[in-house]
């Protein structure tokens, strides 16, 4: 039973983790993309459509990622090339994505699909309790863990990662040093779109193999919250996503036990817990100030 509960938490956490990791990289470059929900839902419809049209869930994943990137490029063009306000553009992107996904997905509603196959890692997946959790999952789960490691390595151990963080802290200085600010930011935004698309594909291919409108149900917003929650550190995003997953699954368990606590209070627990943890984390001023990208949300236009 414990194994099964852990698996449930992992499934709930994976899309949050993926979308938040993508947004983390975007925000590290100083760009705030509030359109995660919009890109995620496009990934969900793309993933499902690709799977239905080709019968291959892996192609579905690619289509989902591609649609996430496509929407992120629209965002990038507006906020990077045209220097529009990032807050408003991100929100508009969410409205646009929710509408467009509904339109594109109309013919896929009610179609049933194949769940993403599980890739067991021989030998390890039979370990007690953690075996199936760590080594008996679908490919998107493994990717989510690899991306945590990859993003950590990239941000903190490579020259490019250093440049990206420098851009996020002070694009003017970075530009003066000859770093191509907009190019880095474009790539970061596209990475964010790819991750959000992957997260969406996870929803429609693994979490609940189906397509319905608005099936992201606010997960994009939670992902945004997790980035701040994690003070822009990838492994803390991992912890945050699983913490959020655990609290939201835990409240359902509390309900099923029939404890008699109002279900609305239990439903509010994940949000209240997030606020509480955030307050505790942010009390440590040094830690948050070091990690917060100083230029977050501000446009940068290179003067030539």
């Amino acid at each position: 039973m414990l194994e099964s509960i852990l698996l449930t938490i992992a499934t709930a956490a994976t899309p949050l983790l993926l979308a938040a990791l993508g947004e983390l990289v975007v925000e590290r470059s100083g760009v705030l993309n509030l359109g995660v929900e919009g890109m995620m839902i496009m990934g969900a419809v793309g993933g499902f459509a690709g799977m239905i049209l080709t019968g291959n869930p892996f192609i579905g994943v690619l289509v989902g990622v591609a649609l996430g990137v496509a929407l992120s490029l629209l965002f990038g063009f507006l906020v990077l090339t045209l220097a529009t306000n990032q807050y408003a553009t991100g929100l508009a992107l969410t409205i646009f994505g929710l509408g467009l996904s509904g339109l594109l997905g109309e013919s896929f509603i009610g179609r049933s699909s194949v769940r993403m196959p599980v890739l067991n890692i021989p030998g390890l997946s039979d370990l007690p309790v953690i075996g199936r959790l760590l080594f008996g999952q679908d490919i998107i789960f493994y990717l989510s863990i690899l991306i945590v490691i990859g993003v950590t390595w990239f941000l903190f151990s490579t020259r490019q990662g250093l440049k990206l963080r420098a851009i996020g802290d002070n694009p003017q200085s970075a530009h003066a040093l000859g770093i191509k600010v907009l190019r880095y930011r474009y790539l970061a935004v596209m990475f964010g779109g790819a991750c959000a698309g992957l997260a969406g594909a996870h929803l429609s291919l693994v979490y609940t193999p189906q397509w319905t409108e608005n099936m992201t149900a606010g997960r994009g917003w939670i992902a945004l919250a997790l980035v701040v929650f994690a003070s822009w550190r990838p492994f803390r995003v991992l912890a945050g996503a699983y913490f959020f997953g655990a609290v939201s699954i835990g409240q359902l368990h509390a309900q099923a036990l029939g404890l008699g606590i109002p279900s609305q209070l239990l439903s509010a627990l994940p949000y209240l817990a997030t606020i509480l943890v955030l307050v505790i984390i942010s009390q440590n001023r040094r830690l948050t100030l070091i990690n917060t990208p100083a230029s977050l949300g501000k446009s940068f236009v290179p003067d030539r």
Partner: peptide, 26 residues
């Protein structure tokens, strides 16, 4: 026309207006 068309249109309108605001300053 389905509600989704209206929402796509609404989203596009907002994105265009935001994009054109750039012309004021640049």
């Amino acid at each position: 026309l389905s509600d989704k068309v209206a929402r796509v249109f609404q989203g596009a309108l907002l994105l265009y207006i935001l994009a054109c605001d750039t012309l004021i300053h640049y």
